[in-house]
Amino acid sequence: MLTTQQDRLMGEINELVEVHGHDRSALIPILQDIQSRYHAISDFTMQVVADRLEIHPVEVFGVVTFYSFLNEKHHGHFVIRVCRTISCDMAGKDAVAQQLRSDLGIDFGETTSDGRFTLEWANCIGMCDQGPAMLVNDHVLTHVTPERVHDILAACEKTFGPHTPQSDEEHTL
């Protein structure tokens, strides 16, 4: 990473620490904000956050690897999480999943080479009555069918916008 980038990131982390606090309880909110801005929590971030909160980097690492929504590896701008739990399964999630695989050319757990889409499984997202359901970033889509997959992907950018500043402001308000 370039020094200027590092400086900028450091500045952002300092700001987040001001907003969320210096205690350990601020750790997860800080990481969530970084995750939504950068689609990953980098090595550098973990060490700076650890330093600011006076904990060990390995503790940050332990937390990041515990929660599904925090990742050390880079995620795409659009993270698509398909619910795989029973009700959505019975409602036909396999067909939707297959279409997503084909249209994106990646398997679950992977990110497209242009860094735009990441495909993941989700455990029950609370839309069991309207399955198959999936999340695209923070947005929920229900009654998804294989035919709709193409339109959803095409509309991603237009409808939802990249998962950055706008949703941040909501977070930090």
């Binding site: 029950c124 609370g126 069991c128």
Partner: peptide, 11 residues
Amino acid sequence: DEGEPGTFKDR
């Protein structure tokens, strides 16, 4: 944290 599969009443 409603996470139990099949539960969505809290939502």
